[in-house]
Design a protein around this nucleic acid. Structure first.
Lengths: 150, 150
DNA sequence: GTGTAAAGTTAAGTTCGCTTAATAAAAAAG
DNA sequence: CTTTTTTATTAAGCGAACTTAACTTTACAC
């Protein structure tokens, strides 16, 4: 990669590298605790949605309702999830993280972002400022582009 | 996220969002073709290393030699990989992508990066320039940080 | 109220990715 | 030239993550 790389190539490279690194660290940490990546992804969904039904999970993980139900069951057994009736609609199960589940996710996020945080320390104050405004720009563009998605 | 977000938070958010998006698109595309993510990861290894032995793959995928051998076998059967004797050391099998395998990887990378390329189009020329130099800075920092790793 | 739709569970069975253990063949070491 | 190490394969078996199909319970429509 030379100095005259196009913005396109730089962005691709950056995304490529960070994705690879992130997934590798994440997988290592999660597996070292005895959990699988599909389990972890499900926990992450619950983490970000705060509270959701089995069919929400089924939809976002792109598996059948039965599969989602079974995974949730295992994670409840493992003490990472809690399952409760929805007060207004008793068909729906509200799935939430247990304290233990929340701790697992938060620790694994810390693990995931350790190198990200280190990276900031490698930059001069001037660089930090430039990078900050560039990232803000990128995030705005991303949100503009993916309106309505997700 | 407000305007006064720390660089740290911005970086975390950016990495989080891009990783999630990348993996989701990738998984969808790969599965739509009837392949699994572990298979895809193995193909990616071969793609980036150009040529490698079974034990290289075993090491980098962090599975046993037997597991790597079996996955390679399936991918050879599927016509995505080629396996040949190393000319200098006949114990070693040189694994390479077949034309079909290369095509699969390249198409899936195009799929993965479609949104990345779109993003660039959302930026003004001035923004593009700022982002370019910021990314170059970040990549340099990353490479400095991970010296000797990988 | 009766019928239909929605949310979830359970059972049975399949496939995949992995492991350990045994084996073969080539290279390196002595 | 024999022994040891490296590289890879094969066999047997296990658990995880799915699927489809049958079933229960609750909500909603009319």
């Amino acid at each position: 990669m030379s100095d005259v790389s196009s913005l396109n190539d730089l962005l691709r490279t950056w995304v490529e590298i960070t994705t690879h690194r992130t997934m590798r660290d994440q997988a290592r940490y999660v597996r070292s605790l005895g959990f699988s990546m599909p389990q972890f992804f499900l926990l992450m969904q619950v983490y970000y949605r705060k509270q959701c039904g089995i069919s929400d999970l089924s939809e976002h993980m792109e598996v059948t309702l039965a599969a989602a139900s079974q995974m949730v069951e295992k994670l409840v057994q493992a003490g990472l999830l809690q399952r409760a009736e929805h007060p207004a609609d008793r068909r729906i199960k509200q799935v939430t993280l247990s304290p233990k589940g929340r701790e697992l996710i938060e620790k694994s996020l810390a693990e995931r972002f350790r190198w990200v945080d280190n990276l900031v320390g490698c930059l001069s104050p001037q660089e930090q400022d430039d990078v900050r405004s560039a990232l803000a720009t990128l995030l705005q563009a991303f949100q503009r582009e993916t309106e309505g998605d997700r």
